[in-house]
Amino acid sequence: MKKIITSIIIYNSLILGAVIMCFPFYYMIITSLKESAYIFTIPPQLVPDPATLKNYVSVWIEADFKLYFWNSVKITVPAVLLNVFLSSLTAYGFARFKFPGKELWFSILIATLAVPGLLLTIPQFDMVRRVKFLMDNPLTIMLTSGIGSVAFNAFFLRGFFEGIPVELEEAAELDGCNAFKTFWKVAMPMARPALATLVILSFMGVWDDYFWPSLILRERSQWTLPIGILGFRAQHSVQWHLLFAGTMIAILPVLVIYVVFQKYFVKTVAEGGLKL
């Protein structure tokens, strides 16, 4: 009896907690389905009536979210691929080879992990603005996001590569594979769980990035979703129903990727203590 009561209390507290945590999202979703007359009613509508998908159509087409969405995709996909490839190369080099100065380099890599992004932004911006070609160019964001956080990723992936039994790679080498082929055909497939986690982290990092792209991509036609969201808010400050249709469009891809890779992700975050 006592056990049942305890578990009822636990369940109820968990449900209460989950409701509080998720309510803002619920409220965002229903607001995105409301007509403009219903966004500030008292009492607030908790179920949209009438519910409409008009807002989504309207931000997608009239408010240019279609453009921002594809701009974001065009930057994020290559940047994530570059980021994962470059980070795995570096991590594999540190994990499997001996070369002069290796541990020194690695410790410098780790030491700079704590440097706040803020310290980097001003000098980085000063570098970019000197080259006219790089300003207002999505290629810049693609490249800088692609090579950014290599230090952290290499640190994170090195352990995974070291955990793979080395015998397989030695066998591949005996069969005549060169080092790159061994890496590409043997080590990379084995590291798939870690790579999946890295893809999510890297995707969220690039997709959600606002600050850096907003400094470089000043032309509206180049804007990514986060810039578009804040740009829209600045122009139409109280059109919350439209704004939230826009934010939902920005959230969905992240949510899909997260749910698909949840299994790998939760495990690696918990084990490695990744901080997002």
């Binding site: 470059l86 570096t90 080879f97 001996k98 090579i147 060169n178």
Partner: peptide, 16 residues
């Protein structure tokens, strides 16, 4: 192998 290892980390370290 020393050389190969160096080549592996080179692009990442340059970017860094």
């Amino acid at each position: 192998r020393k050389f190969a290892g160096f080549l592996f980390v080179l692009p990442g370290m340059m970017a860094y």
